[in-house]
Design a protein around this nucleic acid. Structure first.
Lengths: 205, 205, 205, 205
DNA sequence: GTGTAACCGAGACGGTACGTCTTGTCTTGTG
DNA sequence: CACAAGACAAGACGTACCGTCTCGGTTACAC
């Protein structure tokens, strides 16, 4: 979001950096804001999150924040995605059912830490804001589902999973289970993750 | 909440209603507040919800609200539970798998309406408030899980479901799926509910 | 105030104790309230004075206080008068000018202590409440003026003071001076009192 | 208060207006607040005075008032001083005793009107607030005393008043008398003022 | 004795105001 | 232009009192 192509050297094939007139946006301000926002989310959840606090902590003027982020929800989720987005490595091994187990474990583990608290906060809030919902879906939910879908399809072609598998529903089930436990404040340990995997895989074979 | 032992016919051994000294709590005020709170939740979610607004809409003084509800989160969830709590009738027919399908359908249907929006709002908020989380769990989540568990156990004894079924995980899966779709803003139609039931039941047999 | 005809044997000209039907007023409650009220005034002035606080400190129900004192101003001044009223002994010696000096000293001394803080608080508030103003005038200001007037008249008949002395104005001057210093927060030591006496007596001879 | 050096032409020695960054304070808001504050004081005394009411009447946000005035006492006295401060013109004629009479009359007259009610309210409150007391003393009491002192000194040098006159005490006496009558709710007519002047002047000659 | 009347306690209720915190907009001056 | 600084209107927060209003119990005198 708000990605500035300015710095990316890849577009050097002719298109100039497209520097519009006036003072360019301060990249350092942007980073300060997102960093401070995430720090606040991590320590106090969305409850303690306010534009004022982000401004104070980041040293960036409130006006500047308002110029670039339309609402506190968007700022919160952007700061979360920037940190969390690249964190989930989907496994790709030989046995699809083992991969599935690993995926569930990885998701549970990622959300068990402090990032989970942030995720819960942010997604909770998302529910009231179209834009935030979209950002979450596009940058977090959809990629995860896509990767999971590929894994399941691989299982089908390998003959490990039944051919009439309703892939989206399977994904609904395991992602939903993890997320619901997160919201409810229940633990997300590896034992629980494995038990869930087993239950779901039972229906896939 | 604030249950008056007065009405419980069980103590018919002579114990008088035990009215404590002082002006008794106004039942009409309590109802007005919960009603207004639910109305606000229904139309604008938790975002537009404030004690001030509830006070104005209900015609009850703000101080009176604070006397009985410690925080806006608790008021919100209580107003939701009062409306939604008794809404979910768990089916009890001959075929446990049919019953399961009906249960998933009922849950999805209940949350597909305006109550869903409220539920999402409220549960979202729960995540940052211990007390709200507890209220939600005790009054909504736990009863639902208990009833679902009984249904699944019946299925096992009837020989319809496998005997090594991990009941809590099955429940995690279908409740989580419904709730996640709700949060994400995806549809919760009967077709989707049936597809989910089928996927999960596949693992139960 | 709240004159109790019950005990006063002096009115034995026929009027019986006139005990009206019903439970009689609790004398202990009355005393607790006035005592607590004065204690609060002494430590925090009128600023910290509230019916709630008096009720809490005295252990008397708020309703009971409201039954007997129409406003917090009246309660404050009554509690003050009960303590301060009998405190000022007007001297009666041989030399009227010496007596005057002693009177001014006594007034200044009485108001220099903690009671002064209370007096200032209370009289300050009096200005906005008819009833309080009347109570202060009748129970404090008028008696003081009457006694001072007698003293000055004695001085005239003794030939120490000029015969055309405008007694009320003299009293305005010295009482006003003391009170103004009190309000302004200036000291009220004996030296200042003597200097004031001298200045005023200069105009009396 | 809050004096803006910008307008004072005296600092034309090079110091620029020194406009600090950020949006400048709204002069119109300041005026609205002080005006509304005085209007409320005039009609209901300090009893009806509240920041809320001032905000409503002035149309200025409550937060803005709190930004500039630390307490309601300070706001009250400032609004009073702004109106009343320049109102008292001290006479300067040939005969010092005539001037004194005129001064007492002027003071009494000024406080006899609606401003008197405000003054009484405000000064009454001053007694519990250090800051208010200071403001009243510096901006009202001290200037008045200074001018009165000059008048009396002129009388001494002219030989009209005795040379050993204790000037501060004389001022205590007449200012106190006026203020005490004000608080007590007694009239402050010209006849009374003249009688007071005569009584005090008797001691000055 | 038994009313009945006025008391006292407890505490809920509708209100007003408090002083603080955020939100989002605006209005300056500087880089 | 971007940005820092900060004023502004709006409005919610949770608390303290206000004065009124039920209630349940407690004394008294009066029949």
């Amino acid at each position: 979001m708000e990605q500035e192509p300015s710095g990316s050297g890849a577009d050097g094939h002719g298109a100039p950096p497209r520097r519009t007139a006036g003072r360019p946006r301060s990249e350092s301000a942007r980073r300060s804001v997102l960093g401070a926002a995430y720090a606040i989310l991590e320590e106090g959840g969305i409850e303690d999150f306010s534009i004022d606090r982000v401004a104070r902590l980041s040293g960036v003027a409130r006006t500047t924040i308002y110029r670039w982020w339309p609402s506190k929800a968007v700022l919160a989720i952007e700061s979360f995605l920037e940190q969390f987005g690249p964190q989930l490595a989907v496994p790709r091994g030989e046995a699809p059912d083992q991969d599935f187990r690993a995926l569930v474990r990885a998701l549970a583990a990622a959300l068990a830490g402090p990032a989970g608290r942030v995720a819960a906060s942010v997604v909770a809030h998302a529910q009231s804001d179209e834009e935030t919902q979209r950002l979450f879906r596009e940058n977090f939910s959809d990629p995860l589902r896509t990767q999971a879908a590929e894994l399941l399809e691989r299982g089908i072609t390998h003959g490990v999973f039944r051919s009439d598998l309703d892939i989206p529903r399977v994904i609904d089930a395991f992602v939903g289970a993890v997320y619901f436990r997160l919201i409810i404040g229940s633990s997300l340990g590896p034992d629980w993750a494995d038990a869930l995997s087993e239950t779901i895989l039972n229906g896939c074979r």
